[in-house]
């Protein structure tokens, strides 16, 4: 079979499974400059392990959400830099690979209760945000397709809600910071903004406040005491015979017969 001919094997990630689909062929990739032959169905992470590398850092959930395995790669003959998560990106022939397990970035200390909910609290902690030149390299580097420039712009404009919303999918991998001309830690700034948003801006649930007050006032103490001192049999019976909202009950209409704890 020629090098360029496609195999019949499904072109999908086999993830962490070492068992390869039948007919999977191998392709050449370059890991830190050295050539390796790896099965074409593997993710970058698995391909590196297949090639003999062992991850002691820079690998976490292996499910595309923890942000520990950002990877930077190039393709032969292409000037562009590509970014991805090593645990999610499937290898391609002639990829040039390197892992970025950690990227140093300024991370300030703050007490969320003390800094308040104003945008200038973020400006004071991270004045370097004003060094943004809108080159957009951050957005291009984001493996989660977050519009990083847009949320940094929102921070500069003082719009915390907008910045929190746009940066929501950030997984703190730090690739934005690795490419930043203004040398700022976008991902830490975004995280601070989301914390401020949650603490000061997001509408608070009124019923939750009321319930917390009730709990603090001791309304449920007696019930809790009864439950903790109950025999296992009695507790099981109580649980299996509990009143349940019918699965198809219209939302907001069903009420239990016993309303004393509502």
């Amino acid at each position: 079979m020629s090098e360029t001919e496609k195999t019949q094997a499904p072109k999908m990630a086999t993830g962490d499974r070492a068992i390869l689909p039948e007919g999977a062929r191998t392709i050449p990739v370059y890991i830190m400059g050295k050539r390796y032959e790896v099965p074409e169905t593997l993710t970058i992470m698995k391909a590196m392990e297949y090639s003999g590398f062992k991850f002691v850092r820079g690998a976490g959930c292996r499910g595309g959400i923890c942000g520990a395995c950002p990877t930077v790669y190039r393709k032969a003959g292409d000037y562009k830099i590509y970014f991805g998560l090593a645990c999610q990106t499937v290898v391609e022939p002639d990829m040039f690979l390197a892992q970025i397990p950690f990227y140093p970035a300024n991370r300030t200390a703050y007490d969320l209760e003390e800094i308040g909910g104003e945008a200038d609290a973020v400006h004071a902690l991270y004045p370097e945000v004003f060094r943004c030149v809108a080159c957009n390299n951050c957005t291009k580097a984001c493996p989660m397709d977050v519009d990083v420039l847009a949320y940094i712009s929102a921070v500069k404009q003082g719009d915390m809600a907008k910045a929190a919303e746009i940066s929501f999918d950030c997984i703190q991998c730090g690739m934005c910071a690795s490419r930043c001309m203004g040398e700022m830690p976008q991902f830490h700034i975004g995280q601070l903004v989301r914390r401020i948003y949650g603490r000061y801006i997001q509408p608070q649930a009124e019923h939750l406040k009321k319930r917390v007050e009730e709990i603090n006032s001791g309304k449920y103490d007696k019930m809790l005491e009864d439950l903790t001192s109950m025999s296992k049999e009695k507790l099981t019976k109580l649980y299996t015979e509990r009143e349940r909202e019918p699965d198809l009950a219209p939302s907001g209409e069903w009420m239990p017969e016993d309303t004393q704890y509502l």
């Binding site: 004003f130 943004c132 030149v133 809108a134 420039l149 847009a150 712009s153 500069k156 404009q157």
Partner: peptide, 13 residues
């Protein structure tokens, strides 16, 4: 006048 703010603008520098 009907003022239409442009969308997705960034700091001009």
């Amino acid at each position: 006048c009907e003022v239409e703010e442009i969308e997705r603008w960034n700091c001009c520098g």
